[in-house]
Simulated assay, not measured.
Amino acid sequence: MAISIDSCAAMHIGDRSEQQDRLAIFPHPSRPGCMLAVLADGMGGHSGGAMAAEQVILKARQNFASYAPSSESPTEFLRNVIDDAHVIIKLTRFTSEQDPHSTAVVFMLRPGHADWAHCGDSRLYHFRNGALVARTPDHSLVEELLRSGRITEEQAETHPQRNLLLSCLGAERDPRIDTGGTPALQAGDAFIICSDGLWAYFPDEELGQTLHEQDARTAARTLIDAARKRAQGMGDNISLAIIKVVPA
């Protein structure tokens, strides 16, 4: 079956005074059927977080323009994007008064394949016909407590340190980078990368069903509207990119 891609990127400032998320989807300049989606959630005070997140997008675009599968595997490429952005963010400390940090999710689509890497608590979900196939693990204290069985899912939702990250770009330690992928794309696959300003308000099942039932643009609007209502005036920046594999 021939397939095509339905994609959408969307953002909302939420109830913050500044948009510190950055998001982009762009095609490879010379390789048909190859595209990159990048999301970064900046942290570090006024303008510092936005600057850090912007560096993730710029480095991803720069590296992608020179990406050549013959000399670099997808996993190596994705890791290098995050590592390189981490170094640049650390260097900005010497030219600014901020202490910039950022999360990162980098997703690459090529004919028949999808690969991704991430650091922090921005997430990638992979659904197939509405069912969850994979979800990136958060590099956060609460996620570690959950994995060790020290707290429950219900306790995690209201934990006072639920936003405390154990790894991010720009920190003294090298970033923890987890990777994943799927070797055989098919119609019905759907991916969403999003910041915690979105995923904090949805169970996995609702995200998968929304992506399954609606086209990318409609689903993005539906999810942002629902997140804004559920935030009750206390919402974080929202950013999301949806990539759906549909019959041509």
Rank of each mutant, 00 (worst) to 15 (best):
H212Y: 12
G208H: 03
F94E: 15
V245W: 01
M51F: 06
R31Y: 11
A24E: 15
A190T: 08
I238Y: 01
S4N: 12
Q62G: 08
L78W: 02
A50G: 15
E144R: 09
L23V: 01
D21A: 02
R31N: 11
L198K: 03
I3G: 07
R221Y: 10
I3D: 11
G49W: 04
Q98V: 08
M108H: 03
P247Y: 05
Q62F: 10
G33K: 14
Q155P: 00
R228N: 12
N129K: 09
R93K: 10
R217W: 10
P137K: 02
L146R: 11
R150Q: 13
T222I: 11
I151Q: 02
D115H: 14
R217Y: 09
G130H: 04
D196Y: 05
C168S: 14
K244C: 02
Q209M: 14
C168A: 14
E154P: 02
P160F: 09
G233W: 05
Q20T: 08
E213D: 15
T210G: 05
G170L: 13
T92E: 15
I193F: 03
T103W: 00
Q55H: 14
P69W: 09
P74K: 05
R150G: 04
A200T: 14
R110E: 15
Q19R: 06
D115C: 11
E144T: 07
F64P: 08
S239N: 06
R147N: 14
V105R: 01
T75K: 15
H28T: 03
S7L: 13
E97M: 12
D215R: 15
I151V: 07
I243C: 13
R61M: 13
A52F: 07
R230P: 06
A68Q: 15
T222V: 11
R228T: 10
G188N: 07
E143R: 13
Q19C: 01
T179E: 04
G235C: 02
D178T: 01
Q98F: 12
L36E: 02
D236A: 01
P74S: 04
I5N: 07
I151M: 03
V246I: 15
T152Q: 00
G235I: 01
A156C: 03
L145Q: 04
L36W: 01
G149V: 00
P203T: 06
V142K: 02
E143F: 09
P27K: 15
P203L: 03
L109S: 13
L185C: 09
D174H: 13
T95M: 06
E144A: 07
Q161L: 13
I88A: 13
A248D: 15
D84R: 07
P74G: 03
C194P: 00
E157H: 08
H12Q: 09
N63W: 10
N163E: 03
Q20F: 05
P100E: 02
L240S: 02
L145W: 05
A248P: 07
A114F: 00
P69M: 11
E157F: 00
A226T: 06
K59L: 13
D15W: 05
V106Y: 00
F191D: 09
E157L: 11
M11E: 15
K90V: 07
Q19H: 07
E205N: 10
V38A: 09
C194K: 03
D15I: 01
M35S: 15
A60W: 00
